[in-house]
Design a protein around this nucleic acid. Structure first.
Length: 306
DNA sequence: GTCCAGGTCGCGC
DNA sequence: GCGCGACATGGA
């Protein structure tokens, strides 16, 4: 059976832009449609029920988000609420980028055409999933990231009863239920296996709680410190996580940043990290969005979404 | 075969 | 607080 849930948006919002904002939509269990205007994924709810959700948008100014849920038994209200919460989180429907849009208008030039409703970056419903995925982007090419995430999902995800080929993202418990040696054998994560295994084990044992990282009353610097305390998370991964947690004042300095900055601002000559970061200094709490969207426009000028 | 990727860790100074 | 090699794996 299936159930439709309709979400309202309170800010300008362009779903295809969110889906194309970075590579996350291409990492399992996310599956985009061919045009990347909607996507689906399998979710294991707290109740244990495994469902398949599909999210699309309808309308333009303040679009409706149409969630189509495929499920076996009837959905309980508490399960519907959880689905809504997760989709709103993934799509950042409760995030307001007004400050960024205003700054774009002030900046003028190319920035004044930055369409309101763009700028949202897709994220995962759980911080654990985003953390694992970010660790899987370190010191490897994108193809490797996709392969590692795929292997994790295929080895530890739970199947959707309506189509057992479709799997959820693994829970920390499913990973830490086997030994590290067994884990290394079934998923080729390279040296990252230890990091992801330890992360899973610490969450399972209750030693590490990730939900506190969302708390907006905690200073970003404190959140970053806690992130870096996680094995396998360094400066780049922590800055990426801050972005995924809705804080844009840090820029992840990686090969993407360096090669883009070198080409765009430094005439292909070497530059220091400090010099690079200073370019976005006046974007205040919106540095990441300025950098990322400028980078996208630089490499994919035709990908502009109206 | 060799190099290195959307880096990070742990060591030695 | 910095510099540097090691790290698993597969694609370029």
């Amino acid at each position: 059976m299936h159930t439709e849930i309709i979400l309202s948006t309170k800010n300008p919002y362009i779903l295809p832009s969110t889906l194309r904002s970075h590579g996350w939509v291409d990492l399992l269990p996310n599956i985009p449609d061919e045009k990347v205007e909607s996507f689906s994924r399998v979710e294991r709810l707290s109740s244990g029920k495994v469902i398949n959700i599909h999210a699309a948008s309808l309308g333009s100014k303040l679009p409706k988000i149409i969630i189509t849920v495929k499920h076996e038994d009837a959905l309980m209200q508490i399960e519907r609420n959880e689905i809504v919460k997760r989709v709103r989180y993934m799509l950042r429907l409760d995030e307001n980028l007004r400050g960024f849009y205003d700054l774009c208008k002030k900046k003028g030039n190319k920035w004044k055409n930055f369409t309101e409703g763009r700028g949202y970056l897709l994220r995962s419903p759980e911080i654990f999933e985003d953390l694992v995925k970010v660790i899987c982007t370190t010191n490897i090419q994108w193809g490797g990231t996709k392969r590692m995430v795929k292997e994790l999902v295929e080895s530890f995800g739970v199947p959707f009863p309506g189509d057992p080929a479709l799997l959820s993202f693994p829970s920390p418990e499913s990973i830490s239920s086997i030994s590290l040696e067994e884990f290394k054998d079934c998923v080729r994560l390279g040296y990252r296996a230890g990091y992801i295994y330890e992360l899973s084990a610490r969450i399972t044992s209750g030693d590490l709680k990730l939900n506190g990282l969302i708390d907006t009353s905690t200073p970003a610097a404190e959140v970053k410190k806690r992130l870096i305390e996680i094995k396998g998370v360094g400066n780049y991964a922590a800055a990426s996580m801050l972005m995924l947690l809705g804080r844009y004042d840090q820029i992840p300095v990686d090969t993407v940043f360096r090669s883009f900055m070198k080409a765009k601002y430094f005439d292909n000559k070497p530059f220091s990290e400090e010099e690079g970061l200073s370019i976005y200094e006046d974007w205040g709490r919106w540095k990441y969005l300025a950098y990322w969207n400028e980078m996208l426009a630089f490499y994919y000028p035709k990908a502009e979404i109206k």
